[in-house]
Design a protein around this nucleic acid. Sequence first.
DNA 1: AGCACGCCGACT
DNA 2: GTCGGCGTGCTC
Length: 727
Amino acid sequence: MKILRVALDVPLDTLFDYSAADQGEIAIGDRVLVSFGRRQMVGVVAEITDHSNLAPGRIKPVLQVFRDSPPLSGEIFRLLRFCADYYHHPLGEVVLNALPVPLRQTKPVARAKPTGYHLTETGLALETDTLPARAIVKRKLLQSLKQAGTLLRSDIAAISPSAPQAIKEFIARGWAEESEEIAEPAPTPAKADDLPPLTPPQEQAVTAILSGQDHFQVWLLYGITGSGKTEVYLRVIAQVLQHGGQALVLVPEINLTPQLESRFRARFPDTCQVSLHSRLSAGERLRNWSLAQSGRARIVLGTRLALFTPMPKLKLIVVDEEHDGSFKQQDGLRYSARDMAVARGKQAGTPVILGSATPALETWYNAGIGRYQKLELPARAIAEAALPAIHCIDISRAKLADGLSDSLIDALRARLERGEQSLIFINRRGYAPVMRCAQCGWVSTCHRCSSRLVVHLREKRLRCHHCGHESRIPPTCPDCGNADLAPLGQGTQRLEDNLGSLFPSARILRVDRDSTKRKQALPEMLERIHAAEVDIVIGTQLLAKGHDFKKLTLVGVVNADGALYSADFRASERLFAQLMQVSGRAGRDALPGIVLIQTQFPTHPLFQALIKHDYPGFAETLLTERKQAEFPPFCHQALLRAEAPQMETALAFLRKAQGVVPQDFDVNLFDPVPAQMTRLAGMERAHLLVQAASRGALQAFLSAWNKALFGLGGNVRWSLDVDPLEF
DNA sequence: AGCACGCCGACT
DNA sequence: GTCGGCGTGCTC
């Protein structure tokens, strides 16, 4: 009897045996419908054997083998298995979470309809002018069909959101019909004479990567903002496309996808390109995923979740801004898309490009020891655009008006007079980070988290930025009844108000998560900045990355010091990267830029390195510190996390976990401690750190320990976090 | 994780 | 007399 070992989306570290009878050919990676307990579930066939350790009576038959979508390829299945092993996470959860939502459901998806359309004789005879002038979409659609011959559904959707409706009407009128077979669009290389010339370092980078096109190699593309990393990606991708391959490009944030997407589309207009990120609807995501799986989509651009997209002709992986923390998932399967991209490249035998101006220390280290190859782009691609001058403003002495020093105000005034733009960077949305009672010292705190409630004055509310809890601003102090409540500190909203009264005629725009909540808000705002309809931009993290504003010549950083007191050993690495990144916003065109950073510690080595634009120097300092402290990358870490309604429950579990430690492993176990964010959404959290000198020792230990932990039970939620970034 | 079974408090 | 609280146990 044929036994299928099936991976199911349950938090159990095991596969489940089912029997298969007359379901025809079954392959690893096939989706199956099975009865599990009292319910039905979708699983994925992980192994096929002819025996089971179970009593035959307990083995249920597979109910159905789905034929609506091709099975997961061996290649992608191997990656998922590696990921499950590396992060010690149940295979079923890993595999099922990699599938688009419709493929996880017990109903088969509608078989993909014919994906192409072409004009009929009648349609071809039709003149665009005969359509009503206001039928813009229909005119465009007709035009495009005439030009291209056949259009894919995705192409049609790209014309306009209403174009899919229009094509139905065309079919109803007999102007168009579905195409039975769609020829692969011939790869058309971009015209060489249109391309911007490469700088010598870019040229070298492209040549180096192309020379190793057919085997695994990690390239660290190290270059400051504006040095032209994207152009290097584009040139390498062009070669990949010409050889019939597929390229996977990962970016840290959804907000960066549209920008890169349009740049790629402009360069490769005839190439099928899809994006994958969490803001797509389930249907779009399935469609794009399937296009990649079939090999039709040649460029896949997306956030970390795009890493698990099946791509049969994968020839290149690019991870842009590889240092960015958002490549690490912070719940469930805590994987690093950057690290798994390297693993995928290794399995597929393709080059992997990690791009950054401030590489993660781990990456820098790997390049230093020769595991990765470093390629450096030293200059800004636009020769006239010099590096911005970075200055620190010592606010331990200068007095501040509403958080702004005189020097910064003067600099802002000068830009306004010259008609140039300024950006004030402040990584705190809301009006003020906390509400405080001047009388008794009460501060607004969240009931469910160990965090402070942020003042949102416009909405007259206090909000927890961790759990989303909201309440009205109390009229008087809840503790002492005094009416002397005041917002303490600066947030984006307050800065907006203050700058408004300082510069009444200036056009000020605030760009943060609150002001860009509406779907199209961010692109519209970016457009206004580009069109020079804004004088002063107040921005958070959101604006730090990737946007290139030609008229922007001043970047002010209001308060950068928080990270300097942080208990997190990676805080200064992140601060440096962040400041380097916002600095890159200044003076990207012909106008020279200046960066003013307000700090209490202007002599701190971090700022000293920043002023010199000296990432390598700063990285060396950090590496020396890490080596002395035996921190990553000089050791390997894992965290056992536990959460429960009571802290004591979580700690008790962790102590028990300490007790079941298997012997003879060369690892170092620390005592359980409460997490830095002790309470979150009503749960108390604690963790236990494991360190090992080698990755192998850590992995061997975790495998054995993980098994023991499953036997522990208890009323806590626990999980392993391999290579943790947050404590 | 679900979803059952299983024994103790306030209700039509 | 029942509805329902969430403890613990299992799922091929």
